[in-house]
């Protein structure tokens, strides 16, 4: 429900904080969905630091996966992941252009 003008704060100040995480963005639909396999992850956290959307889930100091509510599919995590070779912790399914 959108608020009426009478219900807004003076000066249009927004006293809510960090409520944007309620916005579930649909932009992943246009991006490439990264997949995560914890078996091969070395927990270097580079994917975490370079993710523009805070979509790398961390629990108990370990990377647990990807939050697809916020992931926009930019692919940085896959590109910046230092683990290369056949067994990659971050990859894009059926994508020949990425490696």
């Amino acid at each position: 429900m959108l608020k009426k003008w009478q219900d807004l704060e003076i000066g249009g100040i927004n006293f809510n904080t960090r409520n944007s995480f309620k916005n579930v963005l649909k932009s992943l639909e246009t991006g490439k969905k990264p997949e995560f396999n914890h078996e091969f992850c070395k927990n270097c956290f580079l994917c975490w630091v370079f993710c523009p959307d805070n979509a790398i889930i961390i629990e108990n100091n370990m990377i647990k996966g990807i939050n697809y509510d916020f992931c926009k599919g930019c692919g940085i995590c896959v590109t910046e992941c230092p683990v290369t070779g056949v067994h990659q912790p971050l990859y894009i399914k059926n994508d020949k252009s990425e490696s």
Binding site: S20, N23, G31, F50, D53, N54, F70, K72
Partner: peptide, 16 residues
Amino acid sequence: LFVSGHGLCPGCGIPV
């Protein structure tokens, strides 16, 4: 202190 759900483009460097 800056959370997800912002509308910056995919791959934007600002949030990093």
